[in-house]
Amino acid sequence: MAEKEFEPKIIGFFCNWCTYASADLAGISRLQYPPNIRVIRVMCSGSISPHHVLRAFQKGADGVLIGGCHIGDCHYLRGNYMTIKRVRFLQDLLKFTGFEPERLHLEWISAAEAPKFAEVVRKFTEKIRKMGPSRLKQAA
């Protein structure tokens, strides 16, 4: 039986004000990107706890993409500073456990940056596709 081509599963945590809005604008602008992503809208990227991300990997996500406002643009003033810290911490943690930290990616995408949004999703999906399925998939 020939193996089906690997289709990565990607979880996107996007803040309501910037990145989620840029995803909407990508739609309005009809910018195309692969449909591998599943989006969870949060109010602020600062509200994404490390546990949320770890849960995604535990359940077999091949990649997690976090999107927030540019530094200085946070709707809640400085929520995204927390995001930086947590993502750095998580990447270190993932590395420490022997899991590829590149499967977690953080990007600042403003509400106006629809082309950037589509580009980021495209590139991240391709990167994960190349990396192959998460080794935690079996466990999930």
Binding site: D24, G27, I28, L31, Y33, P34, P35, I37, A118
Partner: peptide, 21 residues
Amino acid sequence: ANIRDQGAWVHAHDPEGATKR
């Protein structure tokens, strides 16, 4: 569930993928 702006409109050439999403 955002299936237009983050669905049909961005996966216009992949009806199957868009429906799955």
